[in-house]
C-alpha cells in the first residue's frame, strides 16, 4: 500500500480514469459529500472492485440506511435501496433471499450500524447471508451534524457530549468475530488501494463479509479520527497473522491501535444455501434465482 512517489500529470491521470472502465459503475449524480470525506475512497473502491470482478451493474444491489455514508447508492450505477436509519441489513437480507443470483452490498455509517441498527448485525452475521457489509466508521454522526456515536472515543467532545464523551466505545471487530461473521477485515480510507483490494475480496467471499473502514469526517471531527491521527496509528496486521484462527483474530482486534487487513475468514453454508437444504428436506426443489412458489 505504500506507493512509490512520482509526479502525477493531469492529462495522463484523466486518460487513465476514462479508459479504465470503472466509470461505467459510477452514476451520473456527483457525490454530495464534503471534499476530503473518507467516503470518496470507499465509493471509488467499490466501483473499481466491481469493474475488476466483471460483475454486471444490473446484478448489483447496494442497500444502505440513513446517514452521510448511506447516500452511497445514489453515486453508483447499479440497483440501489436507500432505506431507513438502521435497517440496512434486514432489507439487504430480504433482497438476497428474494434473489440469490444478485450481488448484494450493504453500506452504512457507525450510527446506522451500531446504534439504531445494532440488533441486526449479529443475525445477519450468524445466518451468513451472502453479502458484503461495508461499515464506514467516522466515530461521529455526520449527517445530523456532529453528535457522538457508539464508536466515539472516550473524551471526544461533540455537540451532544459538550463535556466529553464518557461512554465506552464499542469494539466492532471483536463483536463481528464473536457474532460469527465468516469474513472480517479492516481498511482505512487513507489507504485507497488496499481498501479497494479488500472490497474486491469481500465481494468475492461466499457468505457474510464485514469490512470495517476507518473513514474521517473532515467537517465535524477535527481532533479525533483525523487523517493526521490515523496515518500515525494504523499498521498492517503482522505478516504471519493466521486468518483461519478465530482466537488470533480476536487478539489482533483487541490491540490498542487499529490494524489493517483480513482478520478472519471461514467457509460455511450461506443463508440461501441453508434454505435450499430445507427445501430438499421438505421434498421441494431448490431453483435458485428469484424466489417464487411452484
Amino acid at each position: 500500500m505504500n506507493e512509490p512517489l512520482r509526479p502525477v500529470y493531469l492529462e495522463e491521470k484523466l486518460e487513465e480514469i476514462r479508459s479504465d472502465g470503472h466509470l461505467a459503475y459510477r452514476s451520473k449524480s456527483l457525490p454530495t459529500w464534503c471534499p476530503g470525506c473518507g467516503y470518496f475512497s470507499v465509493s471509488e473502491g467499490v466501483t473499481k472492485a466491481l469493474k475488476e470482478l466483471h460483475i454486471p451493474t444490473k446484478d448489483v444491489v447496494v442497500v444502505s440506511g440513513i446517514g452521510c455514508a448511506s447516500r452511497f447508492p445514489f453515486f453508483l450505477e447499479a440497483y440501489g435501496f436507500h432505506t431507513l436509519h438502521g435497517r440496512t441489513l434486514p432489507v439487504a437480507t430480504g433482497v438476497k433471499v428474494a434473489n440469490d443470483a444478485l450481488t448484494v452490498v450493504a453500506v452504512g455509517g457507525d450510527g446506522d450500524g451500531f446504534a439504531i441498527g445494532g440488533g441486526h448485525i449479529s443475525h445477519a452475521a450468524r445466518r451468513n447471508v451472502d453479502m458484503t457489509y461495508i461499515l464506514m466508521d467516522n466515530g461521529i454522526y455526520g449527517l445530523t451534524k456532529g453528535q457522538t456515536s457508539p464508536t466515539s472515543a472516550l473524551g471526544f467532545k461533540t455537540s451532544t457530549t459538550p463535556y466529553e464523551n464518557r461512554d465506552q466505545p464499542l469494539r466492532p471487530l471483536m463483536m463481528l468475530l464473536s457474532y460469527g461473521a465468516s469474513w472480517v477485515a479492516q481498511a482505512y480510507a487513507g489507504h485507497q488501494h488496499h481498501l479497494k483490494d479488500l472490497i474486491a475480496q469481500a465481494i468475492t467471499h461466499k457468505g457474510f463479509s464485514y469490512l470495517h473502514v476507518l473513514s474521517p469526517c473532515v467537517t465535524f471531527d477535527k481532533t479525533n479520527m483525523t487523517y493526521a491521527n490515523l496515518d500515525l496509528q494504523v499498521r498492517d496486521l503482522p505478516e504471519d497473522h493466521d486468518s483461519g484462527d478465530l482466537m488470533a483474530a480476536l487478539t489482533a482486534a483487541n490491540a490498542p491501535t487499529p490494524a489493517l487487513g483480513l482478520f478472519y475468514r471461514e467457509e460455511r453454508p450461506t443463508l440461501t444455501e441453508a434454505m435450499d437444504e430445507v427445501m430438499r428436506a421438505a421434498g421441494g426443489e431448490p431453483r435458485g434465482g428469484l424466489a417464487r412458489s411452484a
Binding site: 444491489v61 434486514p90 430480504g94 428474494a98
Partner: peptide, 20 residues
C-alpha cells in the same frame, strides 16, 4: 427474523427485488 422491524424490512427488500 430477529424482530418485526426486520421482518417487514426483509419483506420490503424482497418485494423490491421482485419476489411476492
Amino acid at each position: 427474523t430477529e424482530d418485526e422491524i426486520s421482518a417487514i424490512a426483509a419483506t420490503i427488500g424482497a418485494g423490491y427485488a421482485g419476489s411476492r
